[in-house]
């Protein structure tokens, strides 16, 4: 779906090329089979286990009890809200900064290989490493706190606001924003580059204001890529484990952390519940993507740009 919106022009317009079914299945077959067996199979087998199926017990005990237990847990809404908050906020902030960054890069540094190279560095740094670094920077006795203390703004670490393992997930958001900005920016740059400057120049000669130029010329061009990038970032941050595990609060837990905690519990009953949470995460992400597609679809129909 993210793919279809990014490559939507190709699909909608159609390439016009046709080929034999035999050749098609030769090209697509292996990949399709792999994804079906591993991905489809993983979800399906997970569902079986979450419904209570085990070879030892057979199908006798199948039921929704694990799902209902999870959904009725008072912690569920808290965890869900926290996870949604983290995913939505980091996606939104990263997207806004990326738009500015992409436009500025196009205007001022389009030919600077150095800037492009520097901006690629975060792409190669695993989330885990950056989480460690953010702890060393933002923790109550981190480098920022030490800096403030050395200029006598604060006296003790206790005066430093809690930015890691905190209620607002500042540490988690910082990691995600740092990591995802280059990703979104490069997605935007690839379309902006193709757009070229002619359209903007045309807009300028027509005396369009900056805002007009942005909303009428640039936004329609970048919208599909921006949408796709945001969806990928949202889905990733919603389902990722490492960062909220390391930088989150003791309670409430982000959904993926809760899922794994239950999954690896030595209590046998907790495991299917962990799998159930994992599937709920998958379902929420898929539903979110569907909703956004529908919104985009209607938006496009009514001639809106986003």
């Amino acid at each position: 779906m993210t793919g279809s919106s990014l490559h939507s022009t190709a699909i909608d317009a159609g390439t016009g090329r046709k080929t034999s079914l035999l050749q098609l299945s030769g090209l697509l077959g292996p990949a399709l089979a792999t994804v079906l067996v591993l991905f489809g199979g993983g979800l399906a087998l997970g569902l079986l286990q979450a419904l209570g199926y085990l070879p030892a017990t057979g199908l006798a005990s199948i039921g929704l009890q694990h799902f209902t237990r999870v959904l009725q847990d008072p912690d569920f809404s808290k965890s869900l809200f926290l996870t949604l908050y983290i995913a939505a906020t980091s996606t939104l902030i990263a997207a806004v900064i990326s738009i500015f960054l992409a436009l500025s890069l196009m205007r001022w540094a389009a030919d600077s290989r150095t800037v492009h190279f520097i901006l690629q560095i975060p792409l190669t740094v695993p989330h885990l490493v950056i989480a460690i670094s953010v702890t060393l920077l933002l923790a109550p006795a981190g480098m920022l706190s030490r800096l403030l203390s050395s200029v006598a703004i604060i006296q003790t670490p206790a005066e430093f606001p809690l930015l890691v393992n905190d209620g607002w997930g500042i540490g988690i958001l910082t990691v995600y924003i740092w990591k995802e900005i280059p990703f979104i920016t490069f997605m935007l740059l690839s379309v902006l580059k193709n757009m070229g400057t002619e359209l903007l120049e045309a807009g300028a000669t027509l005396n369009a204001s900056r805002l007009q130029r942005f909303s009428h010329i640039i936004l329609p061009v970048i919208a599909p890529s921006l949408g796709a990038a945001c969806l990928i970032v949202f889905a990733f941050t919603f389902g990722a484990f490492e960062v909220p595990y390391l930088l989150g609060r003791t309670y409430p837990l982000a959904l993926p952390v809760w899922a794994y905690k239950n999954y690896s519990d030595i209590d046998l009953l907790a495991r299917p519940e962990g799998i159930a949470i994992g599937l709920i995460i998958a379902a929420i992400v898929i539903i979110a993507i569907f909703l956004s597609q529908i919104v985009l679809h209607f938006g496009r129909k009514r001639g809106l740009t986003i």
């Binding site: 109550p140 006795a141 206790a158 809690l162 393992n165 609060r249 003791t250």
Partner: peptide, 23 residues
């Protein structure tokens, strides 16, 4: 408690870090 008990270190080593940092 530290940070009003809003959050806890998740391991003894994290606690050691807080201790070493004078928190």
């Amino acid at each position: 408690l530290w940070r009003n008990g809003d959050t806890y270190p998740e391991s003894p080593v994290k606690m050691n870090t807080l201790f070493a940092d004078g928190q």
